[in-house]
Design a binder for these strands. Structure first.
Length: 434
RNA sequence: GGCUCUAUCGUCUAACGGUUAGGACGGAUCCUUCUCAAGGAUUAAAUCCGGGUUCGAUUCCCGGUAGAGUCACCA
């Protein structure tokens, strides 16, 4: 009978929950859930100085946004008595000792509790990296607690993993050198060794560990930027893992089906925002019309909230905050107010202006013949193309019409713009220009 | 520097020891209504170096080199 799979995510609330941790959490979550196991969130706040409630809130909120529910929640700061019990046991068995020493730095104490290092070789099999061996001699008798009420990281982690019956420790490779220390404590306590899986780090474009100066780091910043949580998860999952097939777009459910520890990469992967944007766009395409509409409208300034412009916007964005960018760039202005027209820009290549204005009058004529309720992009296109195709170049008609309506060098095509503006406004803008 | 780990296109990656080394993002070119966007097509682009083992190494072994992580009374 296999033991129950229990995984955990142990962030310390000393900063905003960042994307590297999101991926670690995701792998832990997926592995537990696909094995009918249990996923635990454990706040590692033993450092009273650096831990802050607002960061804990940020962690919890991140999990909520990402839709990764955990079955149990713990705070190490509430478990002091438990650590104390184990600490005493260690000391009773002479596996640790109270050490009185000269403080080397300010803030250091005169007495601390040190682990009695047996100075041996520790070997373990990592699920990602394979066999790994460390000589723990150079670790010396490391400190495991400042006093009985102030346990330090390694002690707290090991005690909790024993108490919570954690079966798989899935964490970043930056923790690999912590593993021998923790195994030492684990053995002293007589606990059962979990399986270790040290996953590759997420790197900055310069290949160093991801850091703040390379852009957004915290999970919730991606929420602010209007990324979809499932897309972020999809993207992160693919750094350091792949299904072995060509499939790249995954919902959380699909990830749950396909994820496996065996296919995790050994070396670090660079965080590539362009790929994130592409993945996010693919996820946006899976959204219902209603959801898309709601999100775009929310990101539009109030006087720009016309549902008609949604089709124009959706094909130009890869995340919701891009809506604001488009507005700021003035790309939507022509739908809401008459543009400023520069006469010289009206001409297509070197077509003389009198020829242009003649073509424009032709356009006004056919558009006037269209019924108000038939004024669709499709019908406008048909009507205008009839004229344009008889010209030596379609641009001789299409360009001035588009420019007259938009006042921009680059814009959506004239048919879409006209259909959004409506018959009256379209014709009035064209007439004004003529 | 010590310890540990890693090494395929710019990036993420695929390839029972035998493939024209495949896919995706990004790039370039072209097409699709003048421009933009979206879409489609095409294309450039990689096995770190040197030895072994083998009939045959991207793949296995060794050595270099390069990179990363870590060396707290933080986690």
């Amino acid at each position: 009978m296999d033991k129950k799979v229990i995984t955990r995510m142990p962030p310390s609330p000393t900063g905003l929950f960042h994307v590297g941790s999101v991926r670690t959490a995701l792998y832990n979550y997926l592995y537990a859930k696909q094995n009918n196991g249990k996923f635990i969130l454990r706040i590692e706040d033993t450092d009273k100085e650096r831990s802050q409630k607002e960061f804990e809130n940020n962690i919890v909120e991140s999990f909520r946004w990402l839709n990764m529910p955990y079955k149990e929640f713990y705070r190490q700061s509430e478990r002091t008595e438990i650590y104390k019990k184990y600490l005493k046991e260690l000391i009773d068995k002479k596996l640790a000792y109270v050490s009185t020493e000269e403080p080397k730095e300010k803030g250091e104490r005169g007495t601390v509790i040190r682990f009695n290092n047996p100075n041996k070789k520790i070997k373990f099999t990592d699920l990602v990296l394979g066999e790994i061996e460390f000589d723990t001699t150079d670790l010396k008798d490391f400190v495991i607690a400042k006093d009985f009420d102030t346990p330090l990281y390694h002690l707290a982690v090991v005690v909790d993993d024993i108490e919570m019956k954690v079966s798989h420790v899935i964490r970043g490779q930056d923790h690999i050198s912590n593993t021998p220390r923790q195994i030492l404590i684990l053995e002293a306590l007589g606990g059962q060794r979990p399986q270790y899986a040290h996953i590759p780090l997420i790197l900055s474009p310069d290949k160093s560990k991801l850091s703040k100066r390379h852009g957004a780091m915290s999970a919730l910043e991606y929420k602010e930027m209007g990324y979809l949580p499932e897309a972020l998860l999809n993207f992160l999952a693919l750094i350091g893992w792949n299904p072995g097939t060509d499939k790249e777009i995954f919902t959380l459910d699909e990830l749950l089906k396909e994820f496996s520890l065996e296919k995790i990469q050994k070396s670090g992967g660079v965080f590539n925002v362009k790929k994130l944007n592409w993945i996010n766009k693919e996820h946006m395409k899976m959204l219902s019309k209603k959801e898309i509409e709601k999100n775009i409208l929310e990101n539009l300034p109030e006087d720009y909230r016309n549902p008609k412009v949604i089709p124009v916007i959706i094909e130009r964005i890869s995340k919701w905050s891009d809506v604001g960018e488009i507005v700021r760039a003035g790309e939507l202005d022509c739908f809401f107010k008459a543009p400023e027209i520069v006469k010289e820009k009206l001409a297509y290549k070197n077509t003389p202006l009198n020829k242009i204005s003649y073509n424009l009058e032709l356009a006004i004529k056919v558009l006037s013949d269209l019924e108000e309720n038939n004024f669709t992009a499709e019908n406008i296109k048909n009507a205008l193309m009839l004229i344009a195709d008889n010209l030596e170049n379609r641009g001789m008609l299409l360009h001035p019409v588009r420019y007259a309506l938009s006042g921009r060098d680059n814009s959506p095509d004239p048919f879409i713009i006209a259909s959004i503006l409506g018959k009256n406004e379209t014709i009035s803008r064209l007439q004004k220009v003529v």
